[in-house]
């Protein structure tokens, strides 16, 4: 009897020891996350119920006024449309390009690591620098792109100021920046597809094209799912490129401003942090809805081995 009690005590003591170690080890991260991220979420939501005046003037409680104002604000709806359109342009194009490149690089190709390096380089550069050089390439008078277009007998395009074109120009930069990163992810998962699958389909008489659609693509879906989820979330938060390319006075501003850019302008340029907060809450809601739809759709098209 005595023996049993003592072992039980011993067990619970080592258990308690493990608990203490566990709590101790997660403490810095959890305290940090709670203060830096979790509480700020509620603070932002709380702040969105206030109208913040100029600095030092304090906040005035306005209830849902910011939200009512937001729903009547044409600029907010433009920003929602622009953000979604940007995402709609960047995600499919970048995913399709990165699949093609990854599949080609997975074949019998010389200079694989060379190509991989080159495609990855845009990912390493600061968006500010990248946008500057693209702005220069896009320059209506002296830009290289219009020079080439003229040489081909086409008219110059006002890439950065034409409201019809500017968002496309921005999306091109977005696609250009992310293709390499997505390609590396896809290439890694292509390498894990067993050779036998291809051999088996070859015996069945499948062509290379059929192999791609019957073997490669279905086995790639888990990574494709991951790649599209992350690219969508990233695209929904687009800011740097638009900020660097389109200033508030640009005629294409209304057609390019994104939700995050609008959030930035309202919170830190016009110093209305209350209204800025309500815009970022709207972004949160939209991203949550999209993520929810994606998780629901996941079961429909993603095959896990």
């Amino acid at each position: 009897m005595n023996n049993i009690i003592s072992t039980r005590k011993k067990v619970s003591k080592s258990k308690l020891n493990m608990w203490l170690w566990g709590w101790f080890m997660v403490a810095p991260t959890m305290i940090g996350l709670i203060f830096l991220n979790i509480i700020p979420i509620f603070q932002t939501i709380y702040l969105s119920l206030f109208k913040s005046g100029d600095f030092g003037r304090g906040n005035i409680f306005v209830g849902f006024d910011n939200y009512i104002r937001m729903f009547g604000d044409a600029q907010v709806w433009h920003a929602v449309a622009n953000t979604l359109l940007y995402t709609l342009l960047v995600v499919p194009f970048s995913v399709v390009f990165s699949i093609i490149i990854a599949v080609l690089l997975n074949g019998k190709i010389k200079g694989k690591s060379f190509f991989r390096t080159i495609y990855f380089i845009p990912m390493m550069a600061a968006p500010a620098a990248v946008t500057m050089v693209w702005r220069w390439l896009y320059n209506p008078q002296f830009g290289l792109i219009n020079y080439v277009l003229n040489r081909l007998g086409l008219d110059s395009v006002k890439w950065t100021t034409d409201p019809q074109v500017a968002l496309i120009a921005i999306s091109i930069i977005g696609i250009w920046s992310i293709v390499g990163y997505n390609m590396v992810l896809l290439l890694a998962s292509l390498k894990e597809i067993p050779r036998d699958y291809y051999e088996a389909s070859e015996i069945d008489g499948a062509s290379k094209m059929q192999q791609f659609f019957v073997v490669t693509l279905p086995l790639l879906t888990p990574t494709l799912f991951f790649v599209s989820v992350t690219t969508i979330i990233q695209s929904m938060q687009v800011f740097d490129v638009i900020y660097m390319m389109i200033d508030v006075a640009n005629p294409a501003y209304e057609n390019t401003v994104s939700l995050v850019y609008l959030f930035y302008n309202n919170s830190f340029k016009y110093m209305d942090k209350g209204y800025g907060s309500s815009i970022v809450v709207l972004l949160l809601v939209i991203i949550m809805i999209i993520t929810y739809i994606q998780l629901k759709a996941e079961k429909k098209w993603v095959n896990y081995m």
Binding site: L36, P40, V260, S277, V280, L283, M288
Partner: peptide, 17 residues
């Protein structure tokens, strides 16, 4: 909480930070 933090757009933390 760790997973949740990763799903939220980072701009939502910025004003309080």
């Amino acid at each position: 909480i760790v997973l949740f933090q990763m799903m939220v757009p980072t701009q939502i933390f910025i004003i309080p930070q």
